[in-house]
Design a protein around this nucleic acid. Sequence first.
DNA 1: CGCAATTCGTAGAGCGATCTACAAGCCCTC
DNA 2: GAGGGCTTGTAGATCGCTCTACGAATTGCG
Lengths: 363, 363
Amino acid sequence: MTIQAKRSVTIEDVARHAGVSRAAVSKVLRDAYGVSAAMRARVEASIAELDYRPKASARAMRGSSYTLGFEIPSIHNHFFPKIITGAMTELAHSPYQLIIAPAGPDHDQGPQAIEVLADRQVDGIVAISSRVPQPWLEELGRATPLVMIGRHQPSVSYDTLCGDDLAGAALAVRHLYELGHRRIVHVTLAESRVDTSPDTPHGMRVVGYERAMAELGLTPEYVRTSPDQSSAADGGQELVKQAVLEFLRAADGPVGIFAAHDELALGALEAIAELGLTPGQASVVGYDDTDIAAHPKMSMSSINQSGTQMGVIAVRLLLERIAGRADSVHEVVAPKLMARGSSAPPEPRVPKAADVPSADPTE
Amino acid sequence: MTIQAKRSVTIEDVARHAGVSRAAVSKVLRDAYGVSAAMRARVEASIAELDYRPKASARAMRGSSYTLGFEIPSIHNHFFPKIITGAMTELAHSPYQLIIAPAGPDHDQGPQAIEVLADRQVDGIVAISSRVPQPWLEELGRATPLVMIGRHQPSVSYDTLCGDDLAGAALAVRHLYELGHRRIVHVTLAESRVDTSPDTPHGMRVVGYERAMAELGLTPEYVRTSPDQSSAADGGQELVKQAVLEFLRAADGPVGIFAAHDELALGALEAIAELGLTPGQASVVGYDDTDIAAHPKMSMSSINQSGTQMGVIAVRLLLERIAGRADSVHEVVAPKLMARGSSAPPEPRVPKAADVPSADPTE
DNA sequence: CGCAATTCGTAGAGCGATCTACAAGCCCTC
DNA sequence: GAGGGCTTGTAGATCGCTCTACGAATTGCG
């Protein structure tokens, strides 16, 4: 009575239709050695006629699944699509397909998402989550070709690829300094979510910030989001906004704000908009140069670390590993400052009603 | 000499370790009938000790892969992550995992991405691409549980879920009308990319726009992006901007712009910003209410169709189908207008330099 | 206490591909 | 024309799991 779920066509069907053995069809599929032009033609005709598609799970059991897996820590951060885009263009004319496993919103779900990919027997994994213990990754890398994005710490069993976060943070700080800012604050994740080990981009940005500030003789200051920030539906933008709001209300002079990534920067800009401050009174520099930063209505200064390029490189490294490279590689991509309207030379804050910059009674 | 790729733990190893048969372990894994508490405990202990993880591809060969696949047409459109978020929360405490296959940037790569999922033997598919022929989907739906998002046309072999695009378009048009606009233009995709069949959200929005305009006695006008819009790296935002720029340069009175989705609306806002027009001179209403629309610096009016909720519903429908439901369901979600700063009562355009609205010499 | 019903566990086929052997046919070359 | 080396194709084991069928042990009940 119910609609009959039709059984799909298998390699057996193709072999029968073409009048050859399963092995022969398999060879054609894999473009393996030992097929005559005549047989290839016959088999390909049968494949086309029967509309045969090899099942990846069956292939994975003995050979490869021709699938690469990408793990991304958050589906909300617009930086990751850039990486995916790069990866897809690089894979366009390869036999490999790409699937994405997004990590759940809860704390530390990176390993879980990576395991999802490993369980699916992908031929290689690109992962971005930073909050994954190194030993765990070493173990994984021994079993599956693996490229980690954002790890500064090289490994023996997998490749790493990251932006130069030290340099990037320095670019941001110096930019604000050169504009004239002397109070430069770093907006970053909750302390419990960022270790300053060289394993996380955010940790490295903190270190870069500290160093740059020290070189300029300035005192570092932090605004941090609450620990459960990423569990919020909007990626925690509301929480950042509150934190920055609090900071800005307490401050009275102009401040430069270096946000550890664009999502945080957007939250900061919200707070600034709410208080009606000018870019001079509160300047913002973000990180990642996501698409929206360049929009004229946002015009947000940001550090570009060419996500698309990272995607391309990640795939290239992974394919090399799959092809057999055994020694591990560590690539670093140079960041670039994109100065836009959200950062400007410092201006004093003036009393709301007055329009004359008269002497300020405070300080 | 090279690092030994270690063989992974199989069900056989667990069985041996626990002193039971493979079948017994399998039963525990699947929570199937016929396991004593004692055996379950022993097996689970072994699983934990050996850190065993069943391979999805092997499971898929006879049973299910416990994986649901999401196909999304563009990794750039920020509406889709909302759907994914909803889906993930709904799946959080189920045995199912979620993987995403993004369609390539080229024209009509939807089917390809969907096939990627089908080849991976996922237990069910949620797909969003509208440019996929109905018969093809009917066929697929007969083989795999399938939920299509954005299809207005119900099907016998799969479930459908969409926003009420007719109503949404009407909301947008009426909003602009009530603000006072009488010239309301629709920014949408290239004609070659939108058929007005009830299969595509964009097509339905066109229809809804036409109807609403007719009811108000207004003349429809279109601004369309070039056909290859989505192949551009930025999702075609630059191309929309150019098209809207051209339109706005030719227009001289105030206009209302109803953009078929927020990405297009962002492009329109870029053009407006470039010409220095006020929200009254060129009002914009987008569609999807993506995160960035609510940002105070963007403050973009948009039609909200609760993407998160859609993700939840899609998963629910899919799980029902997997559980055995045979008759197909068609769900419609009501849209909501989010009025923000980008739309305002019409204002005349004033000559650039002069600040008095004097008579215009031209025309 | 004997027989059926129920519970618990195992054996073994099968899913759809890959891949290692190996056999058959062919072409040279001496 | 015998022997060696290619080329082309096949047989059959194998991957890791699920699931049906069935046997053994336990329980229920008149």
